[in-house]
Amino acid sequence: MTDVTKSDLPAVSSAPRPLRIGAIPTGVWYAMPILALLVFGFLAPMVMVALYSFMPRGSFSPWGTPTLENYVDIVEQNFYISFGWSLWLALLSTALLLVVAYPLAVAIKRAAPKRAVILTVLIVAPLFVAENIRLQGWVLFLDKAGVLDGGLKAMFGVETGSLVTNVPAIVFGIVYVYLPFMLFPMILGLANVPPDVREAAADMGATRWRMFRDIELPLAAPGILIGGLLCFVISLGAFSEAKFLGKGVIVTVAQDIESAFTFGQNWPRGSALSVLVILLAGSAVFIAMRRMDLEKMLGRRG
């Protein structure tokens, strides 16, 4: 038997040392592309919008004398009405989405793996068609002499008339379009509810309602919160639903922003409205995130 000296043995690996190229850790290099994208594609436009919002009316240069007149105009010229509509639509749609998506999320979570995949594909499939086209499809279906109205008339002599051009139709559109954004975070949230914890609660005598309130909801809360936040923030900027299904019955803030930038030719006003929307969405995210434990949400702690 030969002697084995320490140098013959494979080196025992120590804790991984962070790799560096020059003075910059490799992690930072890897983050460079996304950092560049975020700086030029996200941060820079936001700064521009913020700058423009303090420029005099109708100005096309961001370097004029700062003024608050655009914000005053929003209040005085009743632009806050569109702002209010957007906020109300976002709140209502988010609430409806919570109610609609929850049972569906529970069903998918409990379905056998194969069925869960089929259900998921069915829900994702419409996303492959552009939102505007889907909404136009609904208009063709719901409008006067559309598929529903015409079909019922031809078959039973009943008429529904036009079911579009109203606020409920807009809310329906928002709920329809944003369902996946509520559903998938919710399913992730429900994954944090272990089946045996539910069984244990049932075994202890918990009724369905009690189980939902005491066990499912608190454990799935992070996912539900993320879904709610996502839906609230994106429906705040909803645009096409009001345009197509509402046909102008109301004007949302996103439409106001668009018209300020296009035929209104008033960039500072559009910017001021944008800043308000950003502030509202940002504070919703900020408040929600502060109440949430990200570690817990990702299932790292249980």
């Binding site: 272990p194 045996d196 914890v197 069984e199 244990a200 609660a201 075994d203 202890m204 009724t207 005491d214």
Partner: peptide, 16 residues
């Protein structure tokens, strides 16, 4: 289970 006067300690313990 929730109507039975019996109770189980789970393998995973299933604590809340």
């Amino acid at each position: 289970a929730h109507l039975r006067p019996t109770c189980m300690v789970f393998q995973s313990l299933a604590l809340f």
